[in-house]
Computed example of a mutant assay.
Amino acid sequence: MRKRVLITGAAGFLGSHLCERFVKDDYHVIAMDNLITGRLSNLEHLMPKENFEFYHQDVSNFIHVPGKLDYILHFASPASPIDYLKIPIQTLKVGSLGIHNCLGLARVKNARVLIASTSEVYGDPEVHPQTEEYWGNVNPIGPRGVYDEAKRFQEAITMAYHTYHGVETRIARIFNTYGPRMRLNDGRVLPAFIGQALRGEDLTVFGDGSQTRSFCYVDDLVEGLVRLLHSDYTLPVNLGNPDEITISDFAEEIIKLTGTTQKVIYQDLPVNDPKQRQPDITKAKEILDWIPKVSRGEGLKITYAYFKGLSKDELFKKEHNNFEEYIK
């Protein structure tokens, strides 16, 4: 019989790629999403598959799945600064009530849980590159706090269920990931730059551009997640590409990639925006035998081709009109 996996946040960027991978690997995939930020179009190509089913459900309210479950992957959460402003309470609820429901279900079903934590648990780091032993530098009441603290609580309750109830758990700290199916105008730097280039707008860099990010292509990340799920390691593991780049240099890369003639303009840095972001992936290398294989140049070409294929309505759609609140 096929193994059965529940994936929450299945209609989102990462969730949809995970659904695709597990369907391809011949699991029975139960996809769950309330579609508050996810899109059914991300899953349309999987709907006809006999080993795929979709539940339109809010995991913060309850989770009911009939039959056995082997694995639960909790990826339900808003994942962009614009979303934190738009739906802050829902962001906190899915990282607390949502994970509580997932862990309770795992306990009943005797299933293994993998949670999507994030590099944001490190906040604006005082340690570089970031190792799993670093506890972070997070402002709990800042604009990013609803996401950062939700993820930190999610890790804490996951470890509590593991140590107290004996639930099989895995924790992935995911660094910046990109690829097809990202939302173009959600405020994250990569789709923001590509969207501005495609619309003929100047590329907006916040701060002086010296802050850094490290971008991992989605296929590499999914492979790391699958390996972590099937490993015996229960403590957090960083998953990301350590190839670090400044935001200014990255803007120039996007201009070169898209062939546009726009210039780079600079605005004030948002509150609590991390100055550095680079994963130490020593544990992933040693425990999972995993390293990213797709270069940023190769991954960006694929991602740009995806965004170029979007309709004009999608290209010019504004996800939120209060982004100015975030950067104050």
Rank of each mutant, 00 (worst) to 15 (best):
K3C: 06
G15C: 08
H17Q: 03
V23W: 08
A31V: 03
M32E: 02
N51F: 12
H56A: 04
N61Y: 15
P78M: 02
A79C: 13
C102Y: 03
L103I: 08
V108F: 04
S119F: 09
D124G: 00
V127Y: 09
V127L: 10
P129R: 00
Q130K: 08
W135I: 14
G136S: 12
G145I: 03
G145V: 01
A150G: 09
K151F: 06
M159I: 14
A160V: 14
T163C: 10
G166Y: 10
I174G: 06
F175T: 01
D186W: 07
R188Q: 10
Q196G: 04
Q196H: 11
D202P: 08
V205C: 12
F206Q: 08
F215T: 02
F215V: 11
L225K: 01
L229N: 14
S231Q: 01
D232S: 15
D249E: 15
F250M: 07
I254Q: 04
T261Q: 13
Q262W: 03
V264C: 09
Y266S: 10
L269A: 06
K275T: 14
K285F: 06
L288A: 09
K301E: 15
Y306H: 12
F307N: 03
K308S: 11
G309Y: 10
N322P: 00
E325V: 14
E325F: 13
E325N: 08
